[in-house]
């Protein structure tokens, strides 16, 4: 009676039906529509999107920014996570809490802060003009740099948390062991720490990369129409141009990109034997 398949099925059925009907079905129809042409089916919409200069530009910008954010998050993440793991356990909890806290705060509020900092009359420009570094306020907003900073602040905590738990699970004393064997800090990192925390890095990296690829708020607020990313372009195509064909193409590209990133990174996570 405790291993009956039907009981298990009954328990998951409501959720499965809800997700299948209310979520998956419309999404699949939308993705299928990207192959729908005026006269039948085909990849015409995709070719149109890629031949359109803007579409191609936005696609590559999205990939580039997401990759840069992931790279920066990994570098900063290792330093921060290592510093956190090195502290005493009772302080570690507080520090991890401080990393998690921003994740709970509305991304709109978090992104808006950068508007205050980077705007024409914002903190940085006031600083720059008052110090006489520039006569005119600089255009900091609506640049790729602004979007990069916003995304990094949004997703860095995910990387730090993944790396903290990876570093906490590092076997005790491997680092001192490596150093007594003559490895310097750089060798220790690349030969010992990195291979042993690869899984945490990949989990964090996947979260940061897919999060950046599918970000809407940050490019919308800090990039505007000058620095479009895939999601802001999709929104524009629907709400301004009413162009559902190209919207469904962008949707499919977003979907495929996140899935591919998930796949690729998961493959990297499983260590090869040497």
């Amino acid at each position: 009676m405790f291993t009956s398949r039907t009981t298990g099925l009954m328990l998951v059925l409501p959720a499965v039906v809800f997700i299948a009907v209310g979520f998956l079905a419309p999404v699949l129809i939308l993705l299928a529509q990207s192959l729908r042409l005026e006269d039948g089916w085909g990849i015409g919409n995709y070719l149109a999107f890629m031949n359109d200069g803007l579409g191609r530009e936005v696609f590559w910008r999205t990939i580039k920014l997401a990759a840069l954010v992931t790279l920066a998050a990994a570098v900063i993440g290792y330093v921060a996570a290592w510093a956190i793991v090195e502290t005493r356990p009772e302080r570690r909890g507080v520090l991890v809490g401080m990393v998690i806290l921003p994740l709970m705060i509305s991304p709109v509020a978090r992104t808006y802060a950068w508007l205050v900092i980077l705007g024409r009359t914002g903190f940085l420009n006031v600083l720059i003009t008052n110090l006489g570094l520039s006569e005119e306020p600089l255009r900091l907003l609506f640049t790729e740099t602004a979007v990069f900073i916003g995304l990094l602040q949004l997703f860095l905590p995910l990387m730090i948390i993944s790396l903290v738990s990876a570093l906490e699970n590092l076997p005790r004393d491997v680092v001192p062991a490596a150093q007594t064997l003559g490895a310097g800090w750089i060798a220790t990192f690349f030969k010992v720490i990195l291979p042993l925390t690869r899984e945490g890095l990949v989990i964090g990296g996947t979260l940061v990369f897919t999060g950046s690829v599918t970000a809407y708020i940050t490019p919308a607020v800090l990039g505007g129409s000058k620095v479009l990313m895939l999601e802001t372009l999709l929104y524009q195509r629907v709400s301004v141009a009413n162009d559902f064909a190209s919207a469904s193409v962008i949707a499919a590209i977003l979907m495929v990109t996140t899935l591919a990133a998930n796949r690729l990174l998961r493959r990297l996570a499983t260590p090869r034997r040497r």
Binding site: V12, V16, P26, V27, L30, E231, V238, A251, M255
Partner: peptide, 23 residues
């Protein structure tokens, strides 16, 4: 079954809104 149940995490959220609106 597991993939189906976790699919809402994998699918970019903006697609869900658009799909529900359209279909």
């Amino acid at each position: 079954m597991r993939t189906l149940l976790t699919s809402p995490v994998i699918v970019p959220a903006i697609i869900v809104g658009l799909a529900l609106l359209r279909y």
